[in-house]
Write a protein that binds this DNA or RNA. Sequence first.
RNA 1: GGCGGAGUAGCUCAGUGGUAGAGCAGGGGACUCAUAAGCCCUUGGUCGGUGGUUCGAAUCCGCCCUCCGCUACCA
Length: 545
Amino acid sequence: MPDPDLDRYYLTTAIAYANNRPGLHTLYEVIGADAIARYRRMKGHDTRFLTGTDEYSVNIALTAAEQGKDPKHFVDEMVALFKAAEDALQISPDRFIRTTDEDHQRAVHEMIRRSYANGDLYVGTYEGWYCPNEGFIPASQLVEDANGTHCANHPNVELQWLSERNWFFRLSAYQERLERYYAEHPDWVQPEYRRNEMLGFIRGGLEDFSVSREKATWGVPFPIREDGSSAQLPDGSWDPAAGRVYVWFDALTNYITGAGFPDDPAAFAKWWPCDVHIIGKDINRLHTIMWPAMLMSAGLDLPKLVWVHGWLLVQGERMSKSRGNFFDPNDMVAALGSDGTRYAALSEVAFDRDSDVSWDSFVRRYNADLANDFGNLVNRTVTMVNRYLDGERPPPSEAALLQPTWLSALEGYRMNIEGFLLHEAIASLWGFVANANRLVDAEKPWELAKAAQSGDRPAERRLRDVLGDLVEACRLLALAAAPFIPSTAPRVLAQLGHEWRYAENGTGGPPLLDELGWGASGGQPGRVGTPEPLFPRLDVEIPVA
RNA sequence: GGCGGAGUAGCUCAGUGGUAGAGCAGGGGACUCAUAAGCCCUUGGUCGGUGGUUCGAAUCCGCCCUCCGCUACCA
């Protein structure tokens, strides 16, 4: 029978600003989304996972110019760094979208045409302090001292008060509609406190925002002129006098470009609205106030859910490139491995709030959970089967010694991963790791083996039952943890003598929840492999940059 | 300033009326299948302060202190 829950699943991350090499604080969100995407694929959903880079801005054009590079050349280099880091972390996007992609420009243009047709775009005057090195400076970043007013990043550059004729989006017209949408979809922004913050903001009144820049050169060309006519020239290029699209319509639209808008209506009908946008708290307002208003204006459905995660902190301060306190994901992969890095990040950082991280905490987490608890459990299980049963793998026992605890662990795992509390899902699984380790010490297979040697038949049966259930426990754990540790999970199954039936990105196998039933491996005979440490213990303190 | 949240063991947190909890870290022990891992036991907290309500408060109410989030054009 068809399972209505096994629909297609479309999830996105925010696109990363391609102005620098990626840090862990940027990739953390992508790792989390990747784990969710893998879980959905293994569960059987037709899954689409979109992530990518945001590449247009005045700042990027300036940075590129400072380095004597063409902006496109500059972002190509940055994107290569992002892709390399994501490859090293086994990130599995179905599309890596770039705002410089050709189809994205068509999507942005279509969004703007629709919004204009709906009467929500008008030409107005945008004015404010302008830094020649950086563009318009918001009031929050102005510094005032004895020398006057200037921008925080360029204290010696004189500011100019500039006015531009720019396009504005009529956000003020959407206050009531947004309030109603929030009321009718009380769970659409999560966690709840993030929803409440935004609702409070909406109730405080909404102002229109500018959506174009008259003088910018590095950006999507604005597609219409002031009179509403197309700004496309006879040769197919776009009239520079129409200006460029300013961030909002450019960046946010990537989510529908990635679903096939507007080129592929069939794909778009299939994938949109997305199931979830995974974003950081710093861009909550863009995604839960501006973006939904833009979609309403264009006559498109709103995302089903926006999940807002917190920040990584280092000694209480936000991890960021500008502070220079960021962890290089490549260093982490070098030390902890791909899966070790993914696991450490997702277990040590709560997905619903800020979390302080440190190199020590990551290493401790790796050693305690991966090396000592889980890795060692697999290792001792495989070793005992080899030593006491000559490598012949016993089936799960009729006694099903660990089944009750597995059922509650599985429920906690499923509920939490589907509710985006990835750290809680991991904690639920690792509680079961402890249960399995306790079973070993309670049953003492080494004593059962000795008794069996001297002809004690009940002891021999018990030995096979205990080891059969431990093998089953390891199989279940590896499969359930596969979204978090995709490289290691197949290695666990191999050591247990089981076949790994999923493709590298998690597709193509049997429904995960079927496989996660206690005893689902059945009684097929088989032999375990050679025990080999999955997560070598880290004994050396590795200094962090 | 306004609105909201939080202050519980060294660290991260759970616990919303009935004799204070978990994980990690620290200490001790028995074992030995294992990556000197695992298991068992254990040190450690006037539950931010204060005044109330109650037979009884970490838990409810008032006041105070501290910290944090949101408070629009940065991607």
